[in-house]
Design a binder for these strands. Structure first.
Lengths: 123, 123
DNA sequence: ATAACTGTACTATCTGTAATAGTACAGATT
DNA sequence: AATCTGTACTATTACAGATAGTACAGTTAT
């Protein structure tokens, strides 16, 4: 059972699922910084997916700054995730704000919204 | 300029965009209850979209209880949106909770989350 | 050196789904 | 009667994602 996962039933393209998945694993510390990633072909074999699809995901992961690929050597998890962490922080704040706006629009009371927040942070 | 809108660049299928769009308009009171909807063919002409695509959206809208279609007469906005309103309320609460969980995971402080909520409800 | 790895770069093809095109029918309205 | 309505089909087109196959240059280990 691999820590990498894709879902054919998901509407999101496989290569995009994989980039999100790997980004998440790195940010959660489940993929050690500097660690070697499975090679494109190895990952393809592991997930039963075409190497071209994996390649596309790796290109995007490098563009995002999650991994670094070196021809002949392999792909490695980046050693500096500070930029990634702040990016995620801000996008999460924006998403929360957006979600709150929708909730208000739907008729959620201010008190109920506060309670939802407190419940989550109290878990 | 129609109040109905679709976006070809959106990943979501057109018929699904339209069902969401109409549901939203009804719940926001921008489409009077009991009002006649544009006919399948009229809506198709108005949006420049194939009637079959509109038809698919209308079937889904009726399944959701947003409209009622009567062969030979037309399609009409439902007169009872109470069930729809509570559905939307609960799904918005669930979405907010989920979004809050992600924010916490990303490292958002409890105080900042509360402030985001207060800012939105204070708008 | 040579074999077996790496990432990368192509072209061609397959496939599933959304959207389109066209036709038809029965009921309602005017 | 003419013209609307929703509904039900089949056939076709269009597009994007995924696959298949090949190739090349750089690295690594034997």
């Amino acid at each position: 059972m691999s820590i990498f996962s894709v879902d054919y039933k998901n509407r999101k393209p496989i290569w995009e699922q994989l980039t999100d998945n790997v980004t998440d694993l790195v940010l959660r510390g489940l993929l050690p910084l500097g660690e070697a990633m499975p090679s494109v072909r190895a990952m393809a074999a592991e997930l039963g997916i075409n190497p071209n699809t994996i390649q596309k995901a790796y290109v995007e992961l490098e563009r995002r700054g999650v991994i670094i690929s070196i021809p002949g050597r392999g792909s490695f998890v980046t050693t500096d995730i500070s930029a990634l962490l702040t990016e995620r922080l801000e996008s999460a704040a924006a998403a929360l704000s957006e979600s709150a706006r929708a909730a208000k629009e739907a008729g959620i009371e201010r008190e109920r919204a506060i309670k939802i927040i407190e419940d989550v942070w109290g878990e």
